[in-house]
Design a protein around this nucleic acid. Sequence first.
DNA 1: TATTTGCGTAACCGAATGATTACGCTTATA
DNA 2: TATAAGCGTAATCATTCGGTTACGCAAATA
Lengths: 109, 109
Amino acid sequence: MRRDVFQAIADPIRRDIIELLAEKTLTVNSIAEKFEISRPAISKHLKILKECGLINYKKEGRERFCFIQPKNLIPAFIWIEKYRELWEDKLDSFDSYLNKLQSKTNQNE
Amino acid sequence: MRRDVFQAIADPIRRDIIELLAEKTLTVNSIAEKFEISRPAISKHLKILKECGLINYKKEGRERFCFIQPKNLIPAFIWIEKYRELWEDKLDSFDSYLNKLQSKTNQNE
DNA sequence: TATTTGCGTAACCGAATGATTACGCTTATA
DNA sequence: TATAAGCGTAATCATTCGGTTACGCAAATA
């Protein structure tokens, strides 16, 4: 069972949960109310987010408050950030492919 | 079949392919040589990357050159970027959860 | 022209994913 | 103390995922 940040944020519901928790700490039930799926399904998503270190719990009585741990998004951020230069330099599209190919060819081979 | 950037970069092999193509345009076979899995498996990953707009092909003879389209990483970048402020403000960990909870309580309710 | 190369794709398979229902355990409340 | 509320988890299921092998086709080459 792979369990990393990339896999955690691959699911749209889990991304939505993160968005919710970024605003406010919420109990499991109050999260579940915002989605169409069942509460146990939400519990599972929360478990995955917890295992990936993106959220944590704080128990208060019979309630479980979930809060975000945004720091653990950093690895994913760093990975994507590497390519920022590429897209900002417009090294994209077919034209740039040609440019790139030509310059590579001229320089390297 | 969900097919978006987040799902595309969820797989470590696909991330590695993107890393390779960020440096250099490569044929399908030359990509496959860098991994332990079979060429058809690589073809499938490439197909997914293509469907998500992260790469494209250019046919030359019987070879198929793959090149990156980094622009389509931007939506994922933007999504994560939203939380940068959160982790930079150290609104993380149990302590900050408590701070947040208290300030929320004082201000809102 | 016969063969090799580069590749896509179909068929198949086991494992993972995401959902459900059913149940049980704590904790709060009537 | 009986009941309700808040939650986790087990069992189950259909679907998706990621891999394989087998095959076929177009383009290059002998």
